[in-house]
Each structure stands twice: as C-alpha cells, then as structure tokens.
C-alpha cells in the first residue's frame, strides 16, 4: 500500500511499486488531464508537481511518491477557479491541440511558485524538454512572462488572482476570490 497526497487529499493505492505515477493517476484515479507522450521522460506531457517540483511522472515509480504531495493539472485550477497561468494561456490562445499543455502548465506553475521574476533564460530552462508538436512555444513564453508581471504588480492583479501556495514567495494580500 502506497500513501501520498493527491491534489490536497490523502490517498492510498495498492498497486505494483514500479508502476509509473502517470498510469496510477490516469488509470487508477482516473484523472486524465496529464498525458502520455513518450514514456521516457523526453517530452514533458506527463509532468506533475511532486512536493512543488515539476517531475516527469511517466518514469517516476509510484513507490517514490510515498508520503509526498502530488499535484496534477486538475489540482492546479478549474474552469471556475483558474490559476493565473491558465487564464493567461486562454487569453493568449496558447493551446493548439492541447496535448502538451497540462505538462507545460505544471512546469510553468512550478517555476512561478518559486520565482516570480524569472528571466528569459530561467523560463527557457524551466520549460525546456517540453515538446509541443504544434509549436506553441512563443505564446507559452508570452503567457508566462505576462503572468509573472501581473502577479508582481499587486495593483494590476485582477480580483481572484492568487499565488500558488507551495513555496510561496509572497503571500497574496490582495482581494481573495
């Protein structure tokens, strides 16, 4: 039995220890937002937060998350409670087919949770290895840059914008949703 936190809830699974986390999440917990692309840690489609870091879960055995906290795209935000990055994704028409975008968003949100003023190079570093067959990279980068800017200036932070809670750099003192 392996126990961990999934999107804030305590969960346990009885599953072979070497099963990749991705398949546990998709096939056991039926959260289908995280995608399978390569199974080799090469594309980023399967990325989730593990204790706040973005990891490739297709090569991460479920046994290695025991006692840790896992966040998937489903835990990042939803249609009525969008993470600021998701809002920026929509505003910038970032997704095309959308297949890579859950993974992209998990890495982008892990980055901004730790660094609200990432340089271009830091963005590139955090996002590298996320393969987008549709080539949406420029819009993704723009969305990240815009979000960081918006989150940095409290004045222009729209109501409902909140900061990621893990490893908070600054607590959002603004209006809460």
């Amino acid at each position: 039995m392996i126990s961990f936190q999934l999107n804030g809830e305590d969960v346990s699974v009885d599953i072979p220890a070497d099963t990749p986390l991705l398949w546990v999440i998709r096939d056991y917990f039926k959260l289908k937002g995280s995608k399978f692309g390569c199974g080799k840690g090469l594309c980023g489609a399967c990325s989730m937060h593990l204790d706040g870091d973005s990891v490739r879960t297709c090569i991460h055995p479920v046994s290695a998350v025991s006692g840790k906290s896992v966040k998937t795209i489903e835990g990042l935000g939803s249609a009525d409670n969008l993470h600021p990055l998701q809002q920026a994704w929509i505003d910038n028409n970032a997704p095309q087919c959308g297949y890579c975008q859950s993974g992209q968003l998990m890495s982008a949100s892990a980055l901004l949770a730790k660094n609200l003023s990432p340089s271009e190079e830091e963005i590139d570093n955090a996002m590298k290895g996320h393969i987008c067959r549709c080539g949406t990279y420029p819009r993704i980068k723009k969305a990240i840059t815009e979000t960081a800017k918006a989150l940095n200036s409290t004045a222009s932070r729209p109501v409902g914008y909140y900061l990621p809670t893990e490893n908070n750099v600054q607590e959002d003192k603004g209006e809460s949703p």
Partner: peptide
Amino acid sequence: GIAKSTGT
C-alpha cells in the same frame, strides 16, 4: 481554450 488549459 479553457478545456485545453485545464486538462479537461
């Protein structure tokens, strides 16, 4: 856009 940005 919303569906593709929320994993739905």
